[in-house]
Design a protein around this nucleic acid. Sequence first.
DNA 1: CTGTTAGCGCGTTCAC
DNA 2: GTGAACGCGCTAACAG
Lengths: 341, 341
Amino acid sequence: MVTIYDIAKLAKVSPMTVSRVINNTGNTSEAIRNKVNNAIDELGYIPNSSARSLTLKESKLLTLLISDIANPFFTKLARGAEDKARELGYQLMLCNTDEDIEKEKVYINTIISTGADGVLFSPANNSSSKHIKLFNKYQIPFVLVDRDLPDVKVDKVLGDNYSGTKMLLNHLFELGHKNIALINGPKDVYTAMMRKESYKEVHNLLGLSINEKLMFEINYNRNNDAENVVKQLLNLPKDERPTALFASNSSIAIDMIKALHALNVSVPDEISVVCFDDLDPDSAINPFLTVVMQPAYDFGYIGTQMLIDRIKNNSLSKKPREVVLKPEFLLRSSTKPIVIS
Amino acid sequence: MVTIYDIAKLAKVSPMTVSRVINNTGNTSEAIRNKVNNAIDELGYIPNSSARSLTLKESKLLTLLISDIANPFFTKLARGAEDKARELGYQLMLCNTDEDIEKEKVYINTIISTGADGVLFSPANNSSSKHIKLFNKYQIPFVLVDRDLPDVKVDKVLGDNYSGTKMLLNHLFELGHKNIALINGPKDVYTAMMRKESYKEVHNLLGLSINEKLMFEINYNRNNDAENVVKQLLNLPKDERPTALFASNSSIAIDMIKALHALNVSVPDEISVVCFDDLDPDSAINPFLTVVMQPAYDFGYIGTQMLIDRIKNNSLSKKPREVVLKPEFLLRSSTKPIVIS
DNA sequence: CTGTTAGCGCGTTCAC
DNA sequence: GTGAACGCGCTAACAG
């Protein structure tokens, strides 16, 4: 391992001078700077960031703590975060909680232990609030992305769940659907909560009744309950049976469609399906699901910008900002007008 | 920030004893252990891993250095790597080079600087060989995944590019296709190189001639050249014009299909398309592309196991192991028998 | 079984 | 404009 001492020796200066040259701090003569830089090149010196973190209490390391790396929404968010981080001279580390609050806890410990300068955080569920105390205790700034947490006052980048839900429902209404099942994520996850509220509100505003039997809560990722849900829905008496499904995210939509196919129910001929978030990368060649697409990349890009702002002018006093990103409706072929039989 | 000194004071022992309790190293009496643990809980102590790395020269941090996080192949690989890393008490950090050799260089510096214990590495291209000197110099073990590098003798997890290519081509041959265009990745990337060689070999073994005009090299990710390639192919005289495309990865396949669609060429009615690697997550509901699917998750899972093996018994002397993972052929609907007109 | 000392690589503080 | 001493938080090596 090459240290500043090695290069100090080679350049015949003190380690301190080397440090100054590396960090452009204090004054150094041109001649010395050249000597030092040559030595650095010759020895292939790479600074030890552990040592640096220890004295500086800063690591130039950001962490993206998300709940499902297999979900294209989060993958795109990650790309956005990474791009902005690089732009601003930070390194991004990715942690995947798998929607698991325990994993999340472990990760947060590691994050603090590692000395990240900030965290871009999409909490597993509302219980994540507990974990936040740690961030506060260790004074590490974080920005909430996609999923809000009650009573947590920090910078946030959120989606507009109401307008997204409304677009999806209105589309279905226009096609004549009345019995629209809501296959939602867990009720203690912000986005699921919001989408359910919006679902109810949109119905209420239109004077439409809501059938509780059409509302389900399952996991946001990897679902084995999908088939169960479908069976329950299909067993409903004809006048209650849904003609359309509103899946709360794309992962659920996929699982539902698979379950429907397994039972020989055709989409969209017999049941229409819509959901939040798009299905990259291949939706490009095979556009099927009608969705509202959220600007996932921007969630990461903007969130990271806000995070670094916080880190730099650590005016934690400054009032938290909240950015709301609008979704876009994409009409494709998983929806069809209702068939009157 | 809480340090071992704080908890030493509270527990009325020496910092060293605290360290021993935390790490289960040396003997400590039950009574003391309890006192210390209570203090730890009370103060919410979290070890500072920078300090630890400094003395221990080990960070329990692994880095996955890949070239395209938007590619589902690498996403799944990442999940496998992460699972194994967690299993074995390591943390995984993800770096995305975007197929860019310069970004890769910067990342490798950061990786060394951060003090990762090992690297799971899928190089951008053959020039990456230069970067490897740094790993050697800093004695940080790495395992090559998916992409090999000439003359680099380390543990590897590679795909079986020959058999994958053969399955794809044989399938097309059986459907009657003879003019099969190869839309390949860059020639200095291992997988692209291997697939091209295999393409030639399979043709040769069957005594089929190869038309150089049907072979293209474009980027593995985000392609603007796709449309150009398609135009060139379609402008070929009828007897040379391809009736099928062999895309070297799924990203290229998508771009090609988009370009074909843009020109109103139907897949598979007019041109069949196949490629390496599957298109999760939604291929589940919308199976379209005929592919050979590689066990991406296993690339990460096995590679990480090998990496940690190396780290633990750093018997760098031990002969490098090479694991070759077989792909699986998935027949779907992007291919069709050739139409004699 | 427990405590003391020293040092990991670096940057801040204060001299020169 | 340059250098020496100290300390960041932790643990290895040695005492006791």
